[in-house]
C-alpha cells in the first residue's frame, strides 16, 4: 500500500470513528437502534456544503451541520417518544424524509465545494504538516469527540443517560425522564454523525445526496471491531474502541482494495462491510461476548390500554 493510500485510510478511519461514536451513543448507551444515521450523515454534508458555497465560514458551516444533525435526531426521538412509533421505524422515517430534505438543502443531487475555503484549507494555512495535514485535523476532531463523550458520560446527566438506556425502570424510579434522555442521546448521536458528514464533504470536495448509504453499517462495523479488540468494560475503552475499530476497518478495506487478488473493487465496499458486521456478530454470539445488549427485563412503563 502506498503512503498516500495509507494516509487516506487513516483519514477515512478517523472520520468514521465520529460516526462510530455516534452509533455507540444510540445503539449502546441509549439502547436505541437508530437508522437516522444514513440520513443525518449526508444532511451534515449538505448543510456544510450549502453554507460554504453561500460564503459562510467553514468552521461555522461545520457547526451548523452538527446542529442540523442534532435536529434530525430530535425528530426521530419525537416520533418515538411523543408519538410512540417503534424506534427502528422512527429512524427509517427520518432517514427517508432526510433524502428529500438534503436535496432541498443543496438544490440538486450533489454540491461541490472545490475552490471554496474548507476547514482543511484553513487548518493547512495555519499549520503545515504536508501530507498529514487532514489526518491531524481529523484526529483532533475524533480524539476531542472521544474525550468529550468520556467526560459527559461521567457527569450527572451522562450517568442518567446510561442508566436510562440500560435500565429504564430503575432510572424512572430515580426520577429520570426516559423520554428526555432519548431526546438528549439521539440529538448528540446524530450531531456527531452530521459532523462526520460535514467533514467528509469538505475532505472529498463534494456533498452527494447518496453518500449516506451504508453509514450505519460502517459505524456498527467500527463499533463491533473496537469492542472485539478492546472490550466494553468501561466507557473509556468503549470510546477508544470506536476510534481503533474504525481505523482497523478502513485499513482492512484499503488493504483488500489494494491487494486486488480476490477481485474486490470499490463498488463491493458495502457488501464487504455487511459481511464483516454479520460475521462479527455471528462470531460474537458463539463466544457470547459481543452480543447486542439484551432487551430490558420489563417495560419501564405499563401504559393504560384502550
Amino acid at each position: 500500500m502506498s503512503l498516500f493510500a495509507l494516509a487516506g485510510a487513516i483519514e477515512t478511519g478517523l472520520l468514521f470513528s465520529l460516526v462510530a461514536l455516534g452509533v455507540f451513543l444510540s445503539f449502546r448507551v441509549l439502547d436505541f437502534p437508530d437508522l437516522t444515521v444514513d440520513g443525518s450523515f449526508p444532511l451534515g454534508a449538505a448543510t456544510a456544503a450549502a453554507a460554504i458555497t453561500a460564503g459562510a465560514d467553514p468552521f461555522l458551516a461545520t457547526a451548523a451541520a452538527a446542529l442540523s444533525g442534532a435536529a434530525a435526531g430530535l425528530v426521530t426521538a419525537m416520533l418515538n417518544v411523543r408519538f410512540k412509533i417503534m424506534n427502528l421505524l422512527a429512524g427509517i422515517l427520518s432517514m427517508v424524509a432526510l433524502f428529500s430534505i438534503n436535496l432541498r438543502i443543496m438544490g440538486r443531487p450533489n454540491l461541490p465545494v472545490y475552490g471554496y475555503d474548507t476547514v482543511f484549507n484553513r487548518f493547512g494555512s495555519l499549520f503545515d504538516f504536508g501530507l498529514w495535514n487532514d489526518t491531524i485535523l481529523l484526529a483532533i476532531f475524533a480524539i476531542g469527540a472521544k474525550l468529550a463523550i468520556d467526560w459527559f458520560l461521567r457527569t450527572e446527566i451522562g450517568l442518567a443517560l446510561r442508566a436510562s438506556g440500560e435500565n429504564p425502570s430503575m432510572s424512572e424510579a430515580q426520577g429520570i425522564s426516559n423520554g428526555g434522555m432519548r431526546y438528549l442521546g439521539m440529538g448528540l448521536s446524530n450531531a456527531l454523525v452530521a459532523l462526520a458528514g460535514a467533514l467528509f464533504a469538505q475532505m472529498q470536495g463534494v456533498a452527494d445526496v447518496s453518500m449516506g448509504i451504508g453509514t450505519i453499517v460502517t459505524g456498527l462495523a467500527a463499533l463491533i471491531i473496537g469492542e472485539a479488540v478492546l472490550g466494553r468494560r468501561s466507557v473509556f475503552l468503549a470510546t477508544l474502541g470506536c476510534l481503533v475499530g474504525a481505523l482497523i476497518y478502513r485499513l482492512f478495506i484499503a488493504l483488500a482494495l489494494n491487494a486486488g487478488f480476490i477481485g474486490i473493487k470499490a463498488q463491493d465496499l458495502n457488501l464487504v462491510t455487511a459481511v464483516i458486521v454479520a460475521g462479527a456478530v455471528i462470531l460474537s454470539q458463539s463466544r457470547g461476548r459481543l452480543q447486542m445488549p439484551p432487551p430490558p427485563l420489563i417495560p419501564a412503563t405499563t401504559k393504560r390500554e384502550g
Binding site: R154, E156, I157, G158, L159, A160, A163, Q174, G175, I176
Partner: peptide, 18 residues
C-alpha cells in the same frame, strides 16, 4: 455510581461529575 444516581433522585441533574 448507582448511589450517585440515587443521590440526585428527583433533583435537577447537571454537568458536574457524578
Amino acid at each position: 455510581e448507582n448511589l450517585a444516581l440515587a443521590a440526585k433522585r428527583g433533583q435537577q441533574r447537571g454537568l458536574r461529575l457524578a
